[in-house]
């Protein structure tokens, strides 16, 4: 899975450089987020700008990351969701769980 990570103002930004976040690749994102929180980082932003398709496993990996954040007293936020991807968050009510921002910059301003 192609993940690009950078740190900006103590916030780890993970750019998911994949068209699909699904049962085939979402396990790797789950492990990466877990690793970042276990390293002691507190603030994580996952940017989904390139993700055109997400399934229940992709959503599950993000939920896992959210729970990891809570258990490590950290914060996980999302940015740059495409409209069809956002509609899957709405279908599963997860838009009420995550803080979702329209751009990376807006998310970085709100940590």
């Amino acid at each position: 899975m192609n993940l690009q990570t950078e740190t900006r103002n103590d916030i780890v930004v993970i750019y998911v450089k994949e068209e699909r976040l699904d049962a085939h690749n979402s396990g790797e994102l789950k492990i990466e987020v877990q690793r970042i929180f276990e390293e002691g980082k507190k603030n994580v932003l996952i940017d989904l700008k390139d993700v055109r398709f997400i399934d229940s496993s992709g959503l599950g990996a993000l939920v896992s990351g959210f729970k990891n954040a809570i258990s490590h007293q950290g914060i996980l936020k999302l940015s740059s969701l495409q409209s069809q991807v956002r509609s899957m968050f709405e279908l599963t009510r997860l838009h009420r769980v995550f803080e979702i921002f329209s751009s990376t910059a807006e998310a970085l301003d709100n940590f």
Binding site: D55, S56, S57, L59, G60, A61, V63, S64, F66, K67, M88, L91, T92, R93, R96, V97
Partner: peptide, 20 residues
């Protein structure tokens, strides 16, 4: 049907199929 108040990693697939 998934319990929307509880954050489970799994259990949304069949619900999504049935919804669509």
């Amino acid at each position: 049907v998934p319990n929307f108040e509880e954050l489970e990693d799994r259990g949304r697939g069949i619900y999504m199929i049935k919804s669509l």
